[in-house]
Design a protein around this nucleic acid. Structure first.
Lengths: 219, 219
DNA sequence: CCGACAAGTAGAACAGATTCTAGTCCGTGG
DNA sequence: CCACGGACTAGAATCTGTTCTACTTGTCGG
């Protein structure tokens, strides 16, 4: 077999291979969900040996996390592309979360994988903090499209960040409930509104927030 | 698995058997954790055939949930025995949650099972709501040992209940983080204090409990 | 050119949950 | 008394994640 590409730089091939694996895995997960994303199947369709797959992703969970991480990238990009417009920190946060929810529910199987990853994933990759950072940013400042000055490194001990983390927990659970069929989106939104209202009532991005106080930023 | 209408002696034997299975499972889970609680092993030690075990518990998850449910009973009993003393609703809630946390961490393997059950368990048994109910009750009533006045049936749509549910989410996540080794109890307590302070700031089912200070929960 | 080596490959082997097969046992209605 | 049905049993079989074996290839320093 091994139509080994003509001798080339190993590292590029590696990342190429890795990418192909993740794509294959995503494709499989998109239908059938996580259980359809079987390691043998992924290896086969990606054209690598099972052992190789396991070299790149030591466990299925790692692969799931990789898939989900890409999804998360897309989500963040979409947020940046169209920032939330609400007045309050809570409003903006819920806006983002609900949009994320709707987006995810378009691929319930993937959403399921995301949630499980957020919850179960070991220290390997920190997924949940990415959500919390997102909320933090969104809550912190009315997004000023030009300013990069937004705290890309929030103080993770500050009350504001802790509360953003709490909201993340709530969101993940609501998403989970939706996926389990216990709620619909509107119900979840209502709950998120309630929780966010309480959690972010007097949200203030710790210190360095002064820089970003332009009330009505451009759109 | 419905505890179907009794049929003579049969039903007693059934519940006897069921109980023995759960006990065996618990014993195994107490050491080794969920992975040590292998279906074959449980069946063997409980003295039933594998098929029978699967008749009673269609999946391992169901068995885990059964085990964890018993644990939850113990927790509730312990709460009733020694009600939280703090002034504020938030203080009492955190008190209970931290006590639960400490108790659970005495059996990390079981704690792990609990958390995963709370999260993953399907509609079958509703574990998380039991926690929320607990928080609700504890938050609602300044512990009046005599008063039965508190309704055991909270309005699950009320803002107060929704907020209690949010606190449940936060707690489960903090517990998870502790189990993953990302936090210690004190850290978690601090976060719970922050979250509960915000969520239950002006909690009141009927009465008033203004002082929403992050309470020094019991040691 | 050589030997060491990392990265691959094909495929067998292992492990534990879940399912399936065949047959036994026992209480009950006819 | 007896056939039926449901609960059990022992154990094989299946499925899927994970690990292991044995062998090939491509790269590279010397």
């Amino acid at each position: 077999m091994a139509v080994q590409a003509p001798i080339g730089m190993r590292s590029r091939n590696q990342s190429q291979r890795r990418k192909r694996i993740v794509q294959t895995a995503t494709a499989l997960a998109l239908r059938g969900g996580v259980e359809a994303m079987q390691m043998r199947a992924v290896a086969e369709r990606a054209g690598v040996a099972l052992g190789t797959l396991y070299r790149y992703f030591p466990s299925k969970m790692d692969l799931v996390v990789a898939v989900v991480t890409e999804e998360l990238d897309l989500l963040e990009a979409s947020i940046i592309r169209r920032p939330p417009a609400a007045e309050s920190a809570a409003g903006r946060s819920v806006d983002v979360l609900i949009r994320a929810t709707r987006g995810l529910l378009r691929e319930p199987e993937l959403a399921d994988a995301l949630v499980r990853s957020l919850i179960m994933a070991e220290a390997r990759t920190e997924l949940a903090p990415r959500i919390t950072d997102l909320i933090w940013r969104v809550a912190s400042g009315p997004p000023s499209p030009t300013a990069e000055a937004e705290p890309a490194t929030p103080d993770r001990e500050s009350p504001g960040y802790v509360l953003a983390g709490a909201l993340t927990s709530v969101w993940i659970f609501e998403l989970l409930e939706i996926l389990k069929g216990h709620r619909d989106i509107d119900d979840a939104q209502h709950r998120l509104d309630t929780a966010a209202g309480a959690l972010l009532a007097d949200f203030e991005p710790a210190e360095a927030a002064e820089t970003a106080e332009p009330a009505e930023a451009a759109r």
